[in-house]
Amino acid sequence: MSIKDGDTIKIDYTGKLDDGSVFDSSEKHGEPLEFTVGEGQVISGFEEAVRGMDEGDEKEFRIEPSEAYGEYNENLSQQVPKDAIQANMDIQEGMMILVRTPDGREMPAKVTRMGDEEITLDMNHPLAGKALNFNIKIVEA
């Protein structure tokens, strides 16, 4: 019976960027990915790809940024005063930190530049603006 919304499935997968580098895989996590189709637990392009497949099926597909983590948004990269960041943190360029938004939420940000008085934080998802290429196998449907 073909996979449809509401089905809970398990898949083995490998995700690669266009340059061939692996950004994620079920092997890395030591077990298949389990999710319920149609509940928004994975990116929309991924859900669309598994609909209609059957247990044991394998497939390769590409998800454009608009169906994955969105396009890169320059407005999500901002300079902030160094003293706005907790003083007890040893902040280094390239590291991920949690920042508190004005409404009290916390979100991850990558430190992209360290200046004398300011640091630049990028709050885009690390995969924003990137096409994602997957090879999947339905392990259980």
Results as ranks from 00 to 15, higher is better:
P81M: 12
Q78I: 15
Q78M: 14
D18L: 15
G15V: 11
S77L: 02
T120R: 15
G70Q: 07
E93W: 04
N133L: 14
E106F: 11
G104H: 07
N124L: 11
E48Q: 04
R105E: 10
R100D: 04
E31T: 14
Q41D: 08
S44R: 13
G20Q: 04
I3H: 00
G38K: 05
D103T: 15
S21I: 12
E27A: 05
E93M: 10
L127F: 06
K130F: 05
K4S: 04
M123N: 01
V139H: 01
D12Q: 10
L33D: 03
A141R: 10
T8S: 08
V42A: 12
T14D: 08
I9F: 01
F134I: 10
G94N: 07
A87K: 09
K82Q: 06
E55K: 10
R113Q: 13
E106P: 00
M1I: 01
S21V: 15
T112H: 08
K4R: 14
F35M: 08
L132G: 13
Q79M: 14
I138G: 14
D24N: 15
G104F: 03
L76Y: 01
P65K: 02
H29I: 03
Y13F: 13
G20C: 11
I136H: 02
H29M: 09
D116E: 14
V22R: 04
S44C: 09
F23Y: 06
I43K: 09
G129L: 00
S77V: 09
M107Q: 11
T36C: 02
D57F: 05
G52P: 03
S21H: 07
R51N: 00
M95N: 11
G52T: 04
G20D: 02
E34D: 06
R62A: 04
E39G: 09
Q92W: 06
D83S: 15
K110T: 12
E48L: 13
P102Y: 02
E47M: 06
G70Y: 10
V22T: 07
G30M: 06
E27S: 13
D83C: 04
S26T: 12
D12P: 10
L98Y: 07
E60R: 08
H125Q: 11
K130M: 12
I3M: 10
A131K: 05
I97W: 01
G94P: 09
I3L: 09
L121Q: 00
P126K: 06
E71T: 00
K4W: 04
V139N: 05
T101K: 03
N135P: 02
I97K: 01
F35Q: 10
E64A: 14
D83G: 03
A49P: 01
D83I: 10
Q92K: 15
N133G: 00
M95A: 11
E118R: 12
K16H: 05
N88E: 07
N73Y: 05
F46G: 11
L127V: 03
M123V: 09
A87N: 15
M95H: 00
A84W: 12
A141T: 14
T36V: 11
F61R: 09
M107S: 01
L76G: 10
G115D: 03
